[in-house]
Design a binder for these strands. Sequence first.
DNA 1: CTGAAAGCGCTAACAG
DNA 2: CTGTTAGCGCTTTCAG
Lengths: 337, 337
Amino acid sequence: MATISDVAKKANVSKATVSRVLNGVPVREENRQKVLSAIRALDYQPNAQARSLTLGRTDVVGVLVPDMDGPFYGAILEGCQQALWSHGLYMIVRSTHHVKGSEPNLVKLLWEKRVDGLIIFTPREIKEKPMQALVKDLVTNNFPLVVADGELDSLSISGVWIDNFEGAYKATRHLIDLNHPNIGILLGPEDSPESKLRLNGYKRALKDHHLPVNPNLVAIAGDYRSESAEKVLPQLVKAGATAIFACSDELAYGVMESCKKQGIKIPQDLSLIGYDDVPFARLLTPKLTTVAQPLTQLGQVAAGKIARMINGTEREITQITLPTKLVVRETSSVYHG
Amino acid sequence: MATISDVAKKANVSKATVSRVLNGVPVREENRQKVLSAIRALDYQPNAQARSLTLGRTDVVGVLVPDMDGPFYGAILEGCQQALWSHGLYMIVRSTHHVKGSEPNLVKLLWEKRVDGLIIFTPREIKEKPMQALVKDLVTNNFPLVVADGELDSLSISGVWIDNFEGAYKATRHLIDLNHPNIGILLGPEDSPESKLRLNGYKRALKDHHLPVNPNLVAIAGDYRSESAEKVLPQLVKAGATAIFACSDELAYGVMESCKKQGIKIPQDLSLIGYDDVPFARLLTPKLTTVAQPLTQLGQVAAGKIARMINGTEREITQITLPTKLVVRETSSVYHG
DNA sequence: CTGAAAGCGCTAACAG
DNA sequence: CTGTTAGCGCTTTCAG
């Protein structure tokens, strides 16, 4: 592996001169050419490690996600990747594999790897004690950090979210526009921040359109699995729901399955809207109306922010909320008294 | 940011001693403790860049994939990640975003980043000229390289594949076991290596069971999109297919949609088997019988191999083929004359 | 515009 | 067991 000294020797100039042409600093054209051809002849490639050591930066950002399979983080990472690369940055990815409490350690390791910045995509863990401490530490050292989709409480960190309130509001309003009198909501985890926000969006849409909020029409599945939906669906049916807003496509799928068994026709007897717009949503029969989350964009925005923090273009702490998109397909239709 | 010198000063020892306790080299217990507490007091973290520079390794491996959204590479990357991490290695990921001809450049950049090894997951591009040259170059410099799922021709590179021949054989035999006399195959891209292998597996299964290979029962969709399946399905139907082996779940989905429109009942009138076992396969109605590819395992095996090449445990070039798994669900059933 | 020299933080001989 | 020293490959003053 050729080094800068080899090139210098071959071109009969000093290392400094080689370094200059490498970095676009003006050099006499004649020398420039000599250096260039020496580089080619030796197939020289700068050593990024040495460069990092002197420059004090690595051009790498660390990204922490809970998983990479599944329908979410792949798209998010793809977005990150694109944005980072357009800024000349590389991406080291670590998945926690949903292991509770692993984050602080991983962040530390990433940080030891001297990444120039960190994007954390592990919403659940971010509010745990050790994580908070670590994050506070990073922030006070004003280390470039972006937290995506996490609960930040009072911490002043740059963050990016997809707007859960707005998504739920949109879904509910769609059903209201379709004339539905009894709109139920099927929530995932009971106490998660996104559940709260979505419930609020749902309630707000109802109120804004002068519809009552019926507590019997609020059901909690406990998680996002389709099986859980099947368990609580009866509650909603009993309460007379004419339409259901399920907080994930998985849940919506559970509703569809359950309805099929009970002979409830969707959308004739019951309108249904999901959340996420995962790939299978458009493949279900009937095709699922749902709320699409801009996952790739989430990644891009987070990465763009970190890039600007790193190159010093932007030092302020910003908190950005991204809008969702309603995707109307076949499971939602007009209610006929 | 504290350095090793700071620690040395604080502990009244030399940098070398600090380095020793850091690396587990025996040191007088008293000194060890002094160093340890100095480290704690200063919140010292070793600088990985400096370490890399002296050691000549980075503990990072580069991974090149065509995309990260989609149902495949996320799972593969998760597998890589896990295996890599268990060897103390980090993972830099680059997605080509399916841009043709971008690989050589990306590999070069990754390599300049001085990764200790490289895993390439871009099957299509691997046989292009510039890529071949680059790969050959890496191999002759015996740089740790693993190519996954790619066509290697005569190159002697370590590779990992999922067994396309065997997968197709399994699928076809399943249909044969179900007593089907006329089994059609719906291929994706015409000339891709995996299409050829799957076609061979299909033919072989037929021959092994003394069934004729009817060319009219071999259809080519041209790609893996469901729309393409709908176009060529008539050919298969006309040829009297009683069962179809579609080479992707997408294609199978297209067949299902098309059949629905034409009143062909699956599996009563036509048995169907897909390939991939993407998440939506089990959500279709009826649930799709399919061939599952061990994606996570593919990642793990590739990463494990690279790790062993890096740490010198294993220098040989190996080429590993992973078996698929038949997942029988509801779209395949016994043929009744 | 160019070269010499120092230094980024760490490890690895080499003496002691 | 420990300290001194050199050096990994690069950038950056500082003179010239």
